[in-house]
Design a protein around this nucleic acid. Structure first.
Lengths: 101, 101
DNA sequence: TGCAAATTTAGGGAATTACCTAAATATCTA
DNA sequence: TAGATATTTAGGTAATTCCCTAAATTTGCA
């Protein structure tokens, strides 16, 4: 884990919020959009962009940044890319800060 | 704790390194400079700046940023300002990421 | 094949951050 | 009080980040 990369991927309010929204999708996204939601997949880019009130390209890049830091997991299915949290990496981050920072 | 503020204060390699150096001052600063070192106080600004290879003003601002985020503790003594880690806050950060992020 | 929907990639302006030097301030000491 | 040392504040340039629109790509489907 490259700590600086992970921290940078979280050093923006929108990206931090996305991570929180994905913790409980049903609490943050309209039910229609989650019609065929699965915890395996997560939420697609355009739904996240709508929630963030930002353009799809901006959010797409944000998600890729977090994916590169291994904080999110992406799955392409048909024409959608779904993102979910990487709970293991988030716990690893907490552990790393606790023990090594 | 304002998570974003804390994360931003750590989102720079130099600031991250400073936090690590302060974990074990004797492993990272010349013994002469630590002649009257005390864990209560920590290390002074100019010693940290020298170690970082950066100007004193830059490092002074960096340290203030981390102080504002409550990740460091500052003590003014005579004409020196000493900085040490705020271990409690660092553990609180780890806990916050573990439980709330 | 060809259109439609979702996403990604490119390109660019605005805002923020990085980091410097110079100047101002604080504090000790002669 | 004057000088020396440490730090902070101010001010500026360069690099990076933010976040947009336009264009290109991917994939499903008629």
């Amino acid at each position: 884990m490259i700590l600086l990369e992970v921290i940078k991927s979280l050093s923006n309010q929108t990206r931090l919020s996305i991570l929180e929204w994905l913790k409980e999708p049903f609490a943050h996204f309209p039910a229609e959009e989650l019609a065929d939601y699965s915890p395996d997949l997560g939420v697609c880019v355009s739904d996240i962009a709508k929630k963030a009130g930002m353009s799809v390209p901006t959010v797409s890049v944000y998600l890729k940044t977090m994916l590169a830091a291994n904080i999110l997991i992406a799955t392409r299915k048909d024409q959608w890319t779904y993102y979910k949290r990487n709970e293991q990496s988030i716990q690893e981050l907490a552990r790393h800060i606790k023990d090594n920072l």
